[in-house]
Design a protein around this nucleic acid. Structure first.
Length: 207
DNA sequence: AACAGCCTCAACCGCATCGAG
DNA sequence: ACTCGATGCGGTTGAGGCTGT
């Protein structure tokens, strides 16, 4: 990000102003989501379609949750990441109100670099830098996450044979109580995933 | 109080995929 | 079958806030 300003296409870049947010929200409420390039052109925003979509999806869309990821959500993220790997948008579908960007950032912050979730704060308080470095070197502290991320364990969504349609929960029903929404699998594949989620402890809230 | 290092998160980029013509 | 624009996704970056010294 070498300096905000104007993109190659001439559109504005950088942080969105409240005025831009308002324009975008107004336009989407009138015309609906989609056709982002049209949104960019017609709304008066000097932004790329991509930028408009991203802003709407990650920030302006109604129903987005604010605040910290809960332990329950964290558990879901761990389980689904073990299933699908870095398929953040897929994982986000199971966390109503959370965006793929948010989940991606969370994973990166809490799991990728360091050890187990929540260990960060403990480390800060209890461990000296030396010990921290030692743990990072021998990799023992995050063996759980690394195990989950091994190729053998990752469900490959790009494999058409394995790919599973995930019909729920979507943004439309995000206002239902999280994780106990009225889920209705529509295909046998869905049921298979459902079985995994229920039997495989994803929905076990004893985390 | 000042500084340095770390962390978070909004936003960008590049690539892949999809669909219309 | 091919091209091209639109859209979606995952990876990456950097500004600003936070925390420890």
């Amino acid at each position: 990000m070498a300096g905000w300003g104007v993109s190659e296409q001439g559109g504005r870049k950088g942080p969105w102003s409240p005025e831009e947010d308002k324009l975008l929200a107004q336009y989407v409420s009138l015309h609906g989501e989609g056709r982002w390039s049209c949104v960019a052109r017609s709304s008066g925003l000097n932004r790329s379609g991509k930028s408009c979509r991203l802003r709407w999806v990650n920030y302006l869309r109604p129903g987005l949750k604010r605040g910290h990821i809960t332990p329950q959500e964290e558990g879901i993220i761990i389980e689904l990441h073990a299933l699908w790997g870095n398929k953040w948008s897929t994982i986000a579908r199971y966390l109503p109100g959370r965006t793929d960007n948010e989940i991606k950032n969370y994973w990166r912050t809490h799991f990728k670099k360091r050890g187990k979730p929540c260990e960060k704060q403990e480390k800060k308080k209890n461990l000296g830098q030396k010990q921290q470095n030692q743990e990072e070197e021998n990799g023992s502290s995050n063996s759980m996450q690394e195990d989950l991320m091994t190729d053998e364990n990752i469900f490959d969504p790009t494999d058409k044979k394995q790919e599973t349609v995930i019909p729920y929960p979507t943004f439309d029903n995000q206002f239902l109580p999280m994780m106990f929404q009225d889920i209705t699998p529509c295909t046998s594949d869905c049921i298979a995933v459902e079985d995994y989620l229920w039997e495989g402890s994803l929905w076990n809230l004893d985390i």
